[in-house]
């Protein structure tokens, strides 16, 4: 867990200190990739709290999701469906909020602030699969 935080700090330092800046033309693809990466990161956090975490799925999901999100937006731009970007933002945004909501519930339950029956999946209709995608 801490190794990720350490890597995160190193990554931020690398990005801030490097003289290289991505051309603005590619910022669209990077932004959607960042969103996908954030989504996977929170999905992984949620999975680890639920006890279903798997490192291989998390790492492959992180990079694949980011690349696929950027790749799909690129494809959309090529075939004249620029709004595919919006579709990606909406889909990823909904999942982000869902994951955050589940994490909040799990934390509340862990701290004993939430009463009621034990529920490993606060949203049973949406099984924990964020890190699998």
């Amino acid at each position: 867990m801490w190794i990720i935080v350490l890597g995160f700090v190193v990554g931020i330092l690398l990005g801030v200190l490097s003289p290289f800046t991505l051309p603005i033309a590619y910022s669209r693809y990077l932004s959607i990739a960042v969103l996908a990466a954030l989504d996977t990161a929170f999905g992984g956090l949620r999975a680890s709290m639920e006890g279903t975490y798997d490192n291989t799925i998390f790492i492959s999901g992180f990079f694949m999701n980011a690349l696929l999100a950027a790749g799909l937006v690129y494809l959309g731009d090529r075939i004249g469906v620029e709004s595919l970007y919006m579709a990606g933002v909406v889909a990823m945004g909904i999942r982000l909020f869902q994951n955050l909501g589940i994490i909040r519930r799990l934390l509340l339950r862990r701290w004993g602030l939430l009463n009621g029956p034990e529920a490993a999946h606060p949203h049973p209709e949406e099984p924990a699969q964020a890190e699998k995608e």
């Binding site: 990720i4 890597g7 990554g11 990005g15 800046t21 910022s27 954030l38 291989t56």
Partner: peptide, 23 residues
């Protein structure tokens, strides 16, 4: 078992975020 791969995830996330902030 794969500490470096996991660290790489953190590095990539940090790098992407800071790059996007800069842009």
């Amino acid at each position: 078992r794969m500490p470096w791969a996991t660290a790489l995830v953190g590095v990539a996330l940090g790098l992407m975020l800071s790059m996007q902030f800069k842009v």
